[in-house]
Design a protein around this nucleic acid. Structure first.
Lengths: 302, 302
DNA sequence: ATTTACTATTGTCTTTTAGACAACAGTGCT
DNA sequence: AGCACTGTTGTCTAAAAGACAATAGTAAAT
């Protein structure tokens, strides 16, 4: 049985409650509709319509089935429209905001690929640590690490986001690895500057996150420069996992674990990176393709 | 083309990236998978996989398509499971809370019908005006008029919910209809009692909702008794639209419009009635059937 | 560079299934 | 009780998916 066909018949019939009308709508004989519905009912071993030759009525089960199935069919149609070349391609300005380091490294390349797929979408990219308000329409899509999520916003997880303490293998062989957080005070550390000042390294003492007193060798608001210094073996830094994953895999960096627990830059050390959007906007083609594409491109798993 | 079949092949192939494995999974020759995917691509006029005889890779467009389509397929499968008689029918206790008047009048009868469909679901119904916390697991489903929605809860609209000023035709012909809200002070009015006292009638004065000073003839926390009094022509009441819709249609009640704007019992006169649930619970069969059924049964629109 | 092993694709036949069309049957209305 | 309408069933035809064998293309190993 061509079930998709049958389901389309079903949804239409549930609205018209008239086999002939539905048959005409699809340009097939009413006997076909009758048989397909019958097939469906047989497959489910359930009655979807209560019918006499004069009246057709949805059963309660049919109502439940309709509700579930009709949205699914719409999704498939929408998917075809998004991907199908015959449809007019999505058009318009897409305003997207992301955290600078992540944005530069991952979002911008992804957007270049997206531009290749749908070349009628224009981009307005705003890389900032500021929290942009989606509901008030300052951006269509936001990508950021989420601690608390605002209301009325859908969040789709992209990847883990936590800070890890790293150093180069040369640094460790020359200077040894720090054992505890107190070992860090006389180390050369590289720190990140935000709009609100140097980003403190926090350590958890009896459940409370407290800043460490450190004397940074170098502070920058440009993440790559911190990474470059660490790669050159000049010291330690607390960097986001997605920023150092490649270098760790290639053994250019080592992850250092402290005996007295992990460090963090917030009162929480297992955050995620999320893509956020405002649900009503998901109806717009440009938003829909962008969200789907970015989740597929930047997401790392289920 | 049996598109649903093709889509299932597609989703599986997107995971395995291997035609033979996918073919084996469905128990068909790999040539069938190859042809179906080709059909799909032809229909979309798009390339979903980049393939040589040795490697198969999802294209960027394919990733977008996968994301849209796979959830739709899951929905259809889930729908079949819910409705199909061959599956074990949903079982367990369903805890549901609703506002008393609406609950008694609409929710309970709907639950009786639901019990007829799935007789292994047991019900624990709590009719109260208190706001039950879904997140802390005091109920599975809540039905109430929503002004502000709590976080992490999905709301599905059931119907309008606003208060309308009503009187019987006899009352109006004997006493005339009130013209403005000030006309109400010397009228016989019937009011609703909540846990927090008599439910004031509010009127909007220059954008601010203010309570009217009225001398109610009768106050009750049992909505039906108020309605009975109004039907008997003894006075006016401010009652929810869904509670008086039948009587209005049958000309047993008249809706009275005031010249100085509508009345309300909250600082807002166009609320809705919503069904609320906590998304993680939607995976449970009993929750899913109940939500779908209640929305289909009690909902009044698209 | 050449061979090898593996895997997608293509060709052809068979089986399954949807559709067309006509005849039939049940139902609500006059 | 008869009429008009509509869903169902029977039979045939057309289309499409599956089976199976053969082919062609490619990445890796020698």
């Amino acid at each position: 049985m061509d079930k998709l066909r049958a389901l389309k018949y079903f949804v239409n019939l549930a609205n018209t409650l008239n086999f002939s009308t539905t048959a005409e709508h699809f340009g097939v004989p009413s006997s076909s509709v009758s048989r397909r519905i019958k097939d469906l009912e047989a497959e489910l071993s359930a009655t979807l319509f209560e019918r006499t030759t004069r009246t057709v009525q949805l059963t309660d089960l049919g109502k439940v089935y309709l509700l579930e199935v009709s949205t699914a069919l719409q999704s498939i149609e929408m998917a075809d429209e998004l991907v199908g070349a015959q449809s007019k391609s999505p058009t318009g300005m897409l305003r997207i905001t992301a955290m600078p380091a992540y944005g530069e490294r991952f979002v911008l390349p992804a957007l270049e690929k997206l531009r290749g797929l749908y070349n009628n979408i224009d981009f307005d990219v705003n890389l900032t640590d500021q929290v942009i308000n989606l509901a008030s329409n300052d951006a269509d899509i936001a990508i950021r690490s989420a601690s608390t999520l605002p209301d009325n916003v859908v969040a789709r997880r992209l990847c883990d986001h936590q800070f890890v303490l790293v150093a180069s293998p040369e640094y460790v062989s020359n200077n040894g690895a720090p054992k505890t957080s107190t070992d860090l005070t006389d180390r050369a550390v590289f720190m990140y500057r935000t709009q609100h000042g140097t980003l403190d390294w926090l350590t958890s003492r009896e459940g409370v996150w407290q800043p460490l007193k450190l004397n940074p060798k170098f502070v920058s608001n440009y993440g790559q420069s911190i990474l470059d210094n660490v790669l050159a073996g000049r010291g330690l830094a607390l960097l986001p996992n997605w920023g150092v994953a490649q270098d760790i895999k290639a053994d250019r960096l080592l992850v250092l674990e402290l005996e007295d627990g992990p460090l963090s830059t917030r009162g929480n050390n297992s955050l995620g990176m999320y893509l956020l959007y405002h649900p009503p906007k998901f109806r717009l083609q440009k938003i829909r393709v962008a969200v789907d594409f970015l989740v597929a491109e930047l997401g790392d798993g289920p």
